[in-house]
Design a protein around this nucleic acid. Structure first.
Lengths: 190, 190
DNA sequence: GGGTTTCTTGAGCGATCACTCAAGTATATA
DNA sequence: TATATACTTGAGTGATCGCTCAAGAAACCC
């Protein structure tokens, strides 16, 4: 009896994610979304409920994608090499909507108003950090880095370096790849 | 013949800067500004011309303040100790509108739309970086750090670390002071 | 005090915001 | 083919956006 939707929901969410990632929360109007998703208001609200609901889904998809890419890197090259390559990977994609991290952009934009989306972004950042910490811990068990470090502290610093790199990459006239190389090189000194 | 303004312009700009710093460009409405500055729309536009014009003035004041604070630190403790103390100083003030840097927040929020204020924030960041580079160069001349570094590269990395630190400081549950200490400690290894 | 000049006031402007809903259209089953 | 069940459409909602401007109040000169 029912009628199929015209669009692939997954593809719609990916496009919304890229738009939100690039333009932020307030910088993205419903008109923008309607244009990119090729949906009229009625379809949009039937499919996603609200701008906020879609942003939340997009944010989750963003975080999930980042975690997956890191996991693949670990699978292919092991923890140390993965963490060394990850910074460059985060800023090299020319077709990416932005160099900066969507989680930090969301946090910075919405934190002051106590917006739920800021809390969600913060939680995702914490999730990433735990992923990093697990890798540092594993590297210690493998004897790749000195045992007298706190994995959580290493992860915290790595995350901070990564966020700084990706803000720097957003600037014009900055050789962010050089910074990425320095971060990677710093890991060898542990 | 004239009548004096009721308010101190400098104080008004400082209050506007703090509000913009905390809430960002789109997050700050004219209603918010009217409330904080205790001005009606007419007075506001007579005094500043537009929301954008005031943001620009506020941004300049922010950058100027940061440069002054660094200069004072250098005056009091010399370049090395100044750069060591600056990260902690940037995130320790409990009464500050935000931990994160207003320049990077502005850049991240407005860059995608090619907004003039993003370019201005970017220019200020570059100015800061040159200030850092000058200090690293001086430290080399003084023999405090090895001569085989490029001062501009050191400044670029220091700036990146600083931006990352200040994004991290915005997060809840993160000991940013620990990161600040690590950044300062890193300087001793040059 | 009268006259001039500047500052302050606040109702209200058009534009845009996120969002709604009744009507129309397409696809399924019976 | 008839009917039921989505999905799509787009004009239109009230609220809020940044901003204007005519009128009134206050401070200066003479």
């Amino acid at each position: 009896m029912p009628r199929k939707p015209n669009h692939d929901r997954n593809e719609l969410i990916a496009r919304a994610r890229d738009l939100f990632w690039r333009q932020g929360w307030a910088g993205t109007s419903l008109k923008d979304l309607e244009a990119v998703l090729k949906m009229k208001p009625g379809s949009f609200y039937a499919a996603f409920g609200s701008k906020e609901a879609l942003f939340e889904i997009a944010l989750d998809k963003y975080a999930e994608g980042g975690a997956e890419r890191l996991a693949e890197l670990v699978q292919a090259h092991g923890p140390m090499e993965a963490l060394k390559r990850y910074p460059e990977l985060a800023i090299c994609r020319e077709d990416a909507p932005a160099k900066a991290c969507m989680l930090s952009k969301t946090l910075l934009e919405l934190q002051a108003h106590g917006h739920p989306l800021a809390k969600r972004a913060s939680a995702h950042l914490m999730g990433m950090e735990e992923q990093f910490a697990a890798l540092f811990a594993q590297m210690q068990r493998d004897g790749q880095i000195a045992a007298d470090h706190d994995p959580k502290s290493l992860a915290r610093r790595y995350q901070s370096d990564l966020l700084g790199l990706r803000v720097s990459a957003e600037r014009e006239g900055i050789d962010a790849h050089a910074i990425a190389r320095e971060i990677a090189e710093g890991l060898t000194r542990l």
